[in-house]
Structure formats: C-alpha cells, structure tokens
Amino acid sequence: MSPRRTTETPRAGRRPGGPDTRGEILEAARKSFADKGFTATSIRAVAREAGVDAALVHHYFDSKDELFIESMALPVDPRDLAATVLDGPREEIGRRIATVFLGVWESPDGQQRMRAIFRSMVGSEAVARAMREGITQLILQPVSKALGAPDAELRVSLVATQLIGMAMVRYLIELEPVASADLQTLIDRLAPVLQHHLTG
C-alpha cells in the first residue's frame, strides 16, 4: 500500500516573488487594513495573507505607512502633506492647510482617487476605520503634536470637519455656488476659519 499523499499547503510566508507579487501584496494589505484597521495591521500579517516572506514585502514597500498609502490608492503621501503644512509661520498654517487640501482635490487624478476613497468610506465601516486610523497617525497626530496646545487633538479634528465638509459639498454633492466658486476665493474664505480652530 503506497504512503498517503499529503495535501498540506506550503508554509505561508515562503513563496518567492512572482510576476504580480506586488499586486498580491497590495490586495492582502487592503484586506488587512479593512479587516483589522491601520494600527493592528503589520508587515508580517500582510506577508502571511499574501503567502510571501515578510522580507519580500519590505523589498517592495519601505514601511507599513507606504504600504497603507499605496494599498488605499491615496493620491499623495500624507506624510508629505503634514510636512508641508508644518513648514512655515504658525500664523499661516490655516492657509497652508486649505491650499494643500484643495490642491489635491483640484488635480484630475487626485479628485478621481479622493472621490473613490470618500465613497468607499461612506459605504464601508471597515474602510472608514482603516482610513481614520491611518490618517490620524500620518497627519493628525504630527500636526497636533506640533501645535503643542492642551486641546490640540480637538483643534485638529475641528479642522478635519471643515475640510471634509468642503470636499463633500464642492466635489461630491456639487452644491452651488461652492461647486463652481473660484479656488482662490474658497482658500481665502476657508483659511481664517481653519486658523481660528488651530490657534484662536
């Protein structure tokens, strides 16, 4: 009688890279971020889900932050946005935030991606949680820390409400006259409100 043939699958995390390994890693990352959130997701967990070694994930992506940015198809690196916002006089931070945020939405690729992200967040609590945790760590926390105020997190969260509201009204709902207003006019109106939330 011949020995029983095993049907065990190869040990996860050991498969070498293939033609679309990077895409498979991104798909595994999207699933992990949606299921577990940003904080609980790790490079090792994504590697296990994709069936590759963690070193291979690091070969394609320098960090979990980068993996999050690419897997969620963000149009810009949130770390760069935070650095830009914090680079300059404190009394002009509201204008820099308005300029950077609306600038992302005004580019054709940025608007297309941001529309998809917003709709995904509205339709999926899991995606909303992943984005909430990721953006909090990559943007909100660094800006809050730089403010150095006791209620910095509340101040930055209030700024987020203004920005999300503007995005919804101008780019998703397309409510007039905001939808067709001149970009510089919107920045001029929005900047003082954001500045008040942060330093007022």
Rank of each mutant, 00 (worst) to 15 (best):
181 A>R: 04
60 Y>V: 15
91 E>V: 08
166 M>R: 00
76 V>G: 04
65 D>E: 04
113 R>C: 12
156 V>M: 09
96 R>T: 05
154 L>R: 08
92 E>W: 03
7 T>Q: 10
51 G>I: 12
171 Y>Q: 14
82 A>L: 08
177 P>N: 07
80 D>C: 01
151 D>S: 09
185 T>I: 09
99 T>S: 15
83 A>K: 15
54 A>K: 02
53 D>N: 14
10 P>R: 15
57 V>S: 01
11 R>A: 13
83 A>W: 03
84 T>N: 03
32 S>R: 08
84 T>L: 03
28 A>C: 04
102 L>C: 12
4 R>Y: 11
194 L>T: 02
200 G>C: 00
157 S>L: 10
190 L>I: 08
100 V>Q: 08
116 A>G: 04
60 Y>C: 10
188 D>T: 04
108 P>D: 01
36 K>M: 00
126 A>T: 03
167 A>C: 12
56 L>S: 09
20 D>M: 04
92 E>L: 03
21 T>Q: 13
119 R>S: 11
80 D>S: 14
139 I>T: 12
35 D>W: 00
99 T>E: 11
30 R>V: 05
129 R>L: 11
92 E>R: 05
14 R>Q: 05
143 V>F: 06
114 M>N: 01
35 D>Y: 06
106 E>N: 13
5 R>M: 11
193 V>T: 10
149 A>R: 06
115 R>W: 01
63 S>P: 00
107 S>W: 14
87 D>R: 07
23 G>W: 07
170 R>F: 02
144 S>N: 07
105 W>Q: 05
148 G>C: 14
86 L>I: 12
92 E>Q: 12
182 D>Q: 13
26 L>R: 06
97 I>L: 06
61 F>N: 00
128 A>H: 07
24 E>Y: 13
128 A>C: 13
196 H>W: 10
38 F>N: 01
166 M>I: 13
42 S>R: 08
55 A>V: 05
72 M>S: 07
192 P>L: 09
75 P>L: 10
2 S>Y: 10
76 V>E: 15
42 S>P: 06
92 E>S: 03
130 A>D: 14
78 P>N: 07
65 D>M: 13
63 S>W: 02
132 R>L: 13
148 G>S: 10
112 Q>P: 01
164 I>W: 15
50 A>I: 00
11 R>S: 08
52 V>G: 02
108 P>C: 07
198 L>Q: 07
4 R>H: 12
132 R>Y: 09
140 L>G: 01
154 L>V: 12
128 A>D: 15
85 V>Q: 01
76 V>A: 11
125 E>K: 02
30 R>W: 04
58 H>A: 01
164 I>V: 13
145 K>E: 15
112 Q>F: 11
81 L>Q: 10
94 G>H: 09
110 G>A: 07
